[in-house]
Structures are given as structure tokens and as C-alpha cells.
């Protein structure tokens, strides 16, 4: 009986949390489209999410593209420019670009959002916003959601280019492929649906990372330990949701 009760409690708690996150997301999105807006805060978040994430996303992409080319070359035995270019461009634009950029941003930005908002919660700064007639969802949540949804596709675009460059460098300087032929094969391999699916994934991942960062920060309690827990929860939940939605979006685009 005790075992069944604990399963029941866990199930109820899980559904309650999902409900709370759904309500939080609904209110956050509502404030994204309803004025007044805070353009200064949105731009500030765009710079934080987009510009300052460029080095980590770029480094991840270039090494991933290089490794993809290396593994494909070794895995397929002898393979020509067309095969390697095809594997790299498909792998980067459809999956690795958006997923790795999303995971990197979840670690960097999701954690920062949860820590900042969590600290504001435990030091009563969020209460202070309310007493100053400022809606915390509008001031704290909406600018982060808007900025993350807008910047992740741009970051993935950069990751795609740099990832393909990584594959190009290994193919040309290690395998001795002809650069012109490799670039032409890359261009020929690029398909619109795959590329667009990667950008759609990026926008969804941006939303998920910002949602988890703001949700866990907003609901943190119990001082420094609570903020630390919120930060961990934000990164872990964003990463899991990101991989789940990656599967769902891939299924929607390519199931047939």
C-alpha cells in the first residue's frame, strides 16, 4: 500500500508541476504580445543570449563538424567529397547544430536566468517589483522569452556555417579533398526542409531554455541552497525537454 501511495503521490506531483509550468508559460507568452513592452530589456537579453553565446556555440560547432567528417571518412572506408559533405551538412543543419547550440545555451543562459531570478525572489526584489506596480512576468519573463526565441535561430545559423566549415577544414587539409568540389557538394546536399527544421527547432529550444530558466528561478525558495537547486533544475529540465522536443519536431518534419 505504501508503495502504491508513493507512486500516486509522485504522479499527482508530476502532473501538478506540468500544470504549473503550462500556466506559467501561458502567462509569460501572453505578456510577450501585450504592451507595454520593455525594448531596452529585450535588447539587453538578446546581447546576453546571442552575442555572448557565440564563442561557446562556435567552438562546439567547429569541433563537431570536424569530428563528423573524420568519423564518416573512417566509418565509410573510402568515401568521396559528396558523401562526406552530405553527412556533415545533413548532420549539422538538421540535428547537431540546433541540439548542441540548444544544450550549450541551456547550460550558459538557462542557469544564469534561474540564478538571477532566483536571487531576486529570495531577496524580495520580485516583491519589490510588484509594489512598484510592475508586473514581474512582463518585466522579467517576457523579455527573456522573446530574446531567446529570436536569438537561438540566429545562433544555430552561425553554428551551421561554422560546423560545415569544421568538416570542410578536415576534409580538405586532412583527407586532401578538392575544396571546390567539396563546397559544391555541400551546397548540393543542403535541403530546404532540413535547414528550416533546424531553425524551427532552434526557436522552440530557445523558448524551452528561457521558460525553464525563468520558471525555476521564479519559484525558487530557501536562500542560497534554493537558488542552487533552481539553477540545477533549470539546466536539467531544459536539456531533457530539448531532446524530447527534438524528437517530436523531427517526427513532424520527416515522419513521412
Amino acid at each position: 500500500m505504501r508503495f502504491l501511495a508513493s507512486i500516486g503521490r509522485g504522479t499527482i506531483s508530476t502532473f501538478a508541476t506540468i500544470g504549473q509550468i503550462a500556466v506559467f508559460a501561458g502567462i509569460g507568452l501572453y505578456h510577450c504580445v501585450r504592451p507595454p513592452f520593455y525594448p531596452r530589456l529585450i535588447v539587453q537579453q538578446m546581447i546576453e543570449i546571442g552575442y555572448y553565446s557565440l564563442p561557446v556555440v562556435g567552438l562546439t560547432a567547429i569541433f563537431t563538424g570536424a569530428v563528423l567528417a573524420l568519423q564518416s571518412f573512417n566509418g565509410f572506408g573510402f568515401a568521396g567529397e559528396a558523401t562526406i559533405a552530405n553527412v556533415v551538412v545533413w548532420g549539422i543543419t538538421r540535428e547537431l547544430g540546433p541540439v548542441l547550440a540548444g544544450l550549450m545555451v541551456a547550460g550558459r543562459i538557462g542557469a544564469a536566468m534561474a540564478a538571477e531570478i532566483g536571487t531576486m525572489r529570495v531577496t524580495e526584489q520580485i516583491d519589490a517589483l510588484t509594489t512598484l506596480s510592475t508586473n514581474p512576468y512582463k518585466y522579467l519573463v517576457a523579455p527573456r522569452l522573446i530574446a531567446a526565441i529570436a536569438m537561438l535561430p540566429l545562433l544555430v545559423l552561425v553554428a551551421d556555417v561554422i560546423g560545415v566549415l569544421g568538416g570542410f577544414l578536415v576534409s580538405v587539409y586532412d583527407f586532401g579533398f578538392n575544396p571546390t568540389t567539396y563546397l559544391k557538394s555541400t551546397w548540393d546536399s543542403l535541403d530546404g526542409t532540413g535547414f528550416v527544421s533546424g531553425l524551427v527547432k532552434a526557436a522552440v529550444f530557445g523558448f524551452l531554455v528561457a521558460l525553464m530558466g525563468t520558471y525555476h528561478g521564479y519559484h525558487s525558495k530557501g536562500g542560497a541552497q534554493g537558488v542552487g537547486q533552481a539553477t540545477t533544475n533549470a539546466v536539467v529540465s531544459a536539456s531533457i525537454l530539448l531532446l524530447l522536443f527534438n524528437f517530436i519536431i523531427t517526427a513532424v518534419f520527416f515522419a513521412s
Binding site: 538571477e116 531576486m120 526584489q125 509594489t131 506596480s133
Partner: peptide
């Protein structure tokens, strides 16, 4: 709420 002003225990100033 516009009628209110509040001084919090820890001041609750915005760090940013």
C-alpha cells in the same frame, strides 16, 4: 498598488 510605497527589510534594491 500605485497608492503604496514600501521599504523592505533587506532594502530589496535591484542589483542590475
Amino acid at each position: 498598488t500605485r497608492k503604496f510605497g514600501m521599504l523592505f527589510q533587506g532594502a530589496a534594491l535591484f542589483d542590475s
